[in-house]
Amino acid sequence: MTSETRPHAQRIAFTAALAPELTAPRAAPPVEPVAALEPAAAPILAAREVTKRYELGRTTVEALRGVSMAVAPGEFVALMGPSGSGKSTLLQLLGGLDQPTTGAVVFEGNDISHLTDAQATKLRRERTGFVFQAFNLIPLLNVRENIELPFTIAGWSKDVRDRVRQVIELVELTGKENHRPDQLSAGEQQRVAVARALVTRPSVLLADEPTGNLDYTNSGELLDALWRSCEQVGQTIVLVTHDARAAAYADRVLVIGDGRIEEEIDLGRRPDHSAAPLIARLAKVGL
């Protein structure tokens, strides 16, 4: 299957089978509508000529220069580039953590470029999930409590236990629910972070260098878990990485350099995740 034939329906069916009430339509954030996209490939997330400038003293730094890209539902997209290329900045804009200087970010058909803090908070709570490079777990909460943290913040209590159990199984941490972070390995801690990001069934999961602090084996386990969530339940994932091996798990790789998308490499959904084709393509285009 290609990214265009994303098993979006499959994700919905899976969710409906497990917890039908959780698929009840939620009220969308009150935002200004944008132009309609092609129905067959309507992206779940898109950036339209987005720029981001920072003032550092007397200097203006342009982290992004007119970037346009789109992510289809259920697609696994990697943003790849060297340090300082703007890939993390783009991820922050896509996730509503920050706002573009110019341009627009469209999430599920809604422009989220100028949300108020309360609207952005609601978006993060209900629609997106984040995984960061550092483990970012709350040290005094155990695995279960860390994973159900989004529900605790939102004040939701219905069917939390079942959902938490499902994601724990997904990331293969069954039996470690009562462990605290300091009792887990680095890879296990990062998988808890992934589970927490997935527990609310976000529309998009955004991961910023999630394997940056992990060794080879743990990196592989984590990327496998991400890929499984994409493959099995149709989770849409945007991954930022400088590591070709990690990017090779994606269906499509956007190479970012100096604030622009320099190359788009379509790898397709591949169970073997070999990095060789990606490396060859990168070499071919001189990257």
């Binding site: 908070t121 609601k122 993060r124 943290l149 989004p150 913040i153």
Partner: peptide, 16 residues
């Protein structure tokens, strides 16, 4: 700060 940033990133409001 990082912990608070994380909590805010996953949906904790300023008031919380």
């Amino acid at each position: 700060v990082r912990e608070i940033g994380l909590l805010r990133a996953i949906g904790m409001s300023r008031r919380q």
